[in-house]
């Protein structure tokens, strides 16, 4: 048996699968950032369409629903203004997620002491009321779980998409989804029993 063949049998490493889809996404991200830096508003629109649901989900998990759209807009304007500070163009998703989290936290810092108007007011639709109740239950979950659960259940993203867009590892997302769903089911079950 030739040496090379023997070596290949002894060191039989599994063929590493290169995530082609992820690589393509990465290059698209970098290209988008370059175009936006050059002043291309259309590219900014593409970035917005790509990441707005993610930013929306992250903000919705924390902030009253009526203010979510405004904060999402603020997130993207802030990102545009500070685009020069972005070091890794491929990580624009996780950078946007971080801005969204910071903006949501800032919302509570700058919020004036006033009674919050419940989301249900002005909405006769029973579906919306039900949605708000479930959302309220999700918001009581730990920080890491509620964000992932909102992105999965509200925004309809898959686990892989959540990982790619937020910069979390797929394993973390999987764990967050599993534990978050278990806690949510318990909470909703408790509410039903009461």
């Amino acid at each position: 048996m030739p040496d090379s063949e023997l070596t290949s049998q002894v060191f039989a490493f599994p063929a590493r699968e290169f995530p082609a889809a992820a690589a393509a996404t990465v290059s698209i991200q970098a290209e988008l950032v370059d175009r936006i830096s050059a002043g291309d508003e259309e590219a900014f629109g593409e970035l917005y369409r790509m990441y707005a649901p993610m930013a929306h989900g992250i903000v919705l998990a924390r902030v009253p629903r009526n203010d979510v759209d405004d904060i999402v807009q603020e997130v993207f304007i802030s990102a545009y203004e500070n685009l020069a500070t972005l070091k890794n163009k491929d990580a624009v998703g996780s950078w946007l997620a971080m801005i969204a989290r910071n903006r949501a936290a800032e919302y509570f810092r700058r919020a004036r002491p006033m009674d919050e108007i419940p989301d249900e007011i002005g909405q006769d639709d029973a579906e919306r009321t039900e949605a708000n109740e479930i959302l309220a239950a999700i918001r009581t979950l730990p920080e890491a779980y509620k964000e992932t659960i909102v992105l999965r259940l509200v925004e309809g993203m898959t686990g892989q998409e959540i990982a790619e867009q937020t910069g979390l590892t797929p394993d973390s997302v999987r764990v967050n989804l599993h534990r978050g769903m278990r806690l949510l089911r318990d909470k909703l079950g408790i509410e039903v029993k009461r």
Partner: peptide, 15 residues
Amino acid sequence: ALKPLRFAGSVPPRL
């Protein structure tokens, strides 16, 4: 149940 809360797809902010 949560579909009504989904991101509706608004216009990107004017820069």
